[in-house]
Design a protein around this nucleic acid. Structure first.
Lengths: 255, 255
DNA sequence: GCTTGAGCATGACGTAACGTTAAGGTGTAT
DNA sequence: ATACACCTTAACGTTACGTCATGCTCAAGC
């Protein structure tokens, strides 16, 4: 029931160096030293090591862990509570950081495009993308999916090429919607083309495998219900564009 | 327009040592060196430093930042995307860690009680607390509040004394409910006492200022709707306990 | 008994991004 | 002339080990 450093290290999944270090700093001493000077560990040490590793996981410093184990009056609850608060604070900071990175990414990607296209358009599109993502989330939550952060990932991983593709699709969509409005028929070929382009476009913004006909139809309905979207489409196409797209998508998704 | 180390450091909110360090590792060299050997920085360096600090905020290492600024072919989008993924991974780990700390805290608090009381009871209560917190959240979301993590905080900060107080309140609540059931009257004194104890109990679990009569009544309704709660009260009091508590709370909150 | 290879020991340097003295030169106001 | 603020380089301290380098120990095979 006695282990040498390497045996003990394999048992717990740490390095032998770690054990020697813990010995040195007085965190975990071996049970006794062999006549050859070898460190020998017993079952008590195994248990202690497990505890140490548990608290290390929780990001306590070795100093704190040492106090926990060696100072009898140590308030474990106090320490855990404090650690909990630290972790929560860290979590909040991380959330902020992630948002900042996403902004930086959007700015970086946007800049590449904006040098070619009109800057105002770029801004508007970016705004729209934001809303679109948000709405995608809401719809999927309604449908029981819990995607939450996933969609931001999706956007962050989008390449410059993908981004340009979405812009191209959007332009084509607008052209087709204009045609459809002239014909005033959501079942017409340009209207159905627009609905299909819209679906393609969504694939860039929604996480893999989350597209459903219902969600697509739901989003199109929101274009009519939500003035932000309605205005965007009215401004870029013509009056009644949001409704036309909704009707086209309804027909498209019912097939 | 030229700054010495300390002037520059005050400008950017970093230490002079940091600037000397950045000089040493070649991250940010001064514009020129004074005849007295002083480092002199110009406006270009100020801009560069701002960029460095921005990326440092995003938790890039100084090595990476150095590449960003000095290697012309460096892919900023690639780096940002990678960093984004790292941060997301970190976020997930943090979420797990926080959950683990909370479990450890609950276990620790529970243990103090369990030495006095029966262990099975302890476990059941812990389960209920969990559900209670969850339900509090759901109710408040229905009522438009977005509390989310706050309630976990609340629990984590709870002292041993508070924890024991909740247990005491709960026991008293159960006694009063039993009386009320015998009288079979939700307006009776013990029933109203139970409702009041229940309100007191909630104050320990819900974040400050989030208690409303509506939320309280809503939770009591859930006791009837949700079998987990219904069973708990039926087991600990008697048949019809959940309904009695709901009715008592309805009367209590309507006053 | 000897060699070989695995395993043990200690010691010391490297890591990241600085903080913190320590010892000594510079600039300016009194 | 001196006081005081500011500059310089050098070097150690921090955290939790990883990674050699050098040398001893142990069990197995010849």
């Amino acid at each position: 029931m006695n282990y040498t450093v390497t045996q003990m290290s394999r048992l717990a999944g740490v390095s032998a160096r770690t054990l020697r270090y813990y010995d040195k700093i007085g965190l975990l001493k071996p049970e006794f030293i062999n006549e050859s000077g070898y460190r020998m560990y017993g079952p008590k040490q195994v248990d202690l090591l497990q505890q140490i590793l548990f608290y290390r996981e929780l990001r306590f410093s070795l100093k704190e862990i040492s106090k926990m184990l060696h100072v009898p009056s140590f308030s474990l609850i106090g320490a855990l509570t404090e650690q909990h608060q630290k972790l929560i604070a860290e979590q909040k900071r991380l959330d902020l950081l992630i948002a900042t990175v996403e902004k930086a990414l959007a700015a970086q990607k946007g800049e590449l495009i904006m040098s070619d296209q009109e800057k105002f358009e770029g801004f508007k599109k970016q705004m729209l993308d934001q809303n679109e993502k948000q709405y995608g989330k809401e719809i999927h939550e309604k449908y029981g999916d819990h995607i939450v952060n996933q969609s931001n990932d999706q956007f962050a991983q989008m390449s410059k090429e993908d981004y340009e593709a979405t812009v191209a699709i959007q332009n084509e969509l607008i052209q087709n919607l204009k045609q459809a409005l002239k014909l005033n028929d959501p079942a017409s070929e340009p209207a159905q083309k627009a609905a299909d382009l819209h679906r393609q476009w969504l694939f860039y913004f929604w996480p893999e495998g989350t597209y459903t006909k219902e969600a697509h139809a739901g989003l199109a309905q929101m274009y009519v219900d939500d003035s932000r979207f309605t205005h965007y489409y009215e401004d870029h196409v013509a009056e009644g564009a949001a409704k036309m797209l909704r009707d086209a998508v309804r027909i498209y998704t019912s097939k």
